[in-house]
């Protein structure tokens, strides 16, 4: 096993394979970070639409809650397949990357909504009362009272979830998106040893995920130390 590894390694890390893996890495990064960014934006809107003292008017609140509950309780693979076939059957011309991106965005939104809800709930009740007593509009309550206080609570866990989505994108290899896991499968079928292919991408995934997670932890420690308003 080891002799074969040493024999294969120079060929495996040749310029073409590295370019191939680089392209795949780029797709993984785009898919996860872009997906997480869009998803988190939608998730915050959902959380705002769920809160009774912000925009939580009955039908919006119900829909937002249903969406969050449903999308958090279906496995990524099943969501991916549903969206994949929905695109296919609707006849819309979408690239595989777009389909995977939509899946990441929709799931990230559901998870971010829960984090944002925790952030909004961290704002103490007297603050809400004071804002209402001063006749602040909903928008003003959100931008002047809630957002400045809750971002400290919301921001750090988002990085932890972003790591979750980087890892989930490996499942997008199932529909054939050219990301790291799919690239490793292709290289493996081309005859490179499984240890090299999957070992390499395991390390690459680790090198993306670990700094992201560490950054979140660093932020948590930093933001937690400061006194709350």
């Amino acid at each position: 096993m080891w002799e074969q590894l040493l024999e294969d390694a120079p060929r495996f890390f040749g310029i073409w394979n590295l370019m191939f893996l680089g392209q795949a890495l780029l797709n993984t990064l785009l898919l996860s970070y872009l997906g997480a960014a869009f998803g988190f934006a939608i998730g915050f809107s959902l959380a705002i639409g769920r809160h009774p003292r912000l925009y939580g008017i009955a039908p919006i609140r119900l829909l937002a809650t249903a969406y969050v509950e449903v999308f958090r309780r279906i496995p990524f693979l099943v969501k991916l397949m549903c969206i994949f076939f929905a695109f296919q059957l609707s006849g819309a011309q979408a690239s595989l990357f777009t389909i995977a991106l939509v899946t990441v965005v929709l799931s990230a939104a559901a998870f971010a909504a829960e984090i944002a809800r925790a952030g909004i709930e961290a704002v103490p009740a007297p603050q809400w009362d004071a804002a209402e007593a001063m006749n602040f509009s909903r928008w003003k309550v959100l931008t002047r009272v809630v957002a400045p206080q809750s971002w400290r609570v919301v921001l750090p866990p988002l990085f932890g979830y972003a790591v979750g989505f980087i890892k989930s994108t490996s499942i997008a290899s199932q529909i054939g998106v050219m990301e790291l896991t799919y690239a490793a499968k292709i290289l493996n079928t081309r005859g490179f040893s499984a240890l090299l292919c999957f070992g390499t991408i395991l390390i690459v995934y680790f090198l993306i995920c670990w700094p992201t997670k560490r950054f979140g932890e660093h932020l948590e420690a930093r933001l937690g130390r400061r006194p709350k308003v």
Partner: peptide
């Protein structure tokens, strides 16, 4: 910090 799918692969 690594995906479960790749771990199982």
């Amino acid at each position: 910090n690594t995906p479960l799918l790749v771990q199982i692969f």
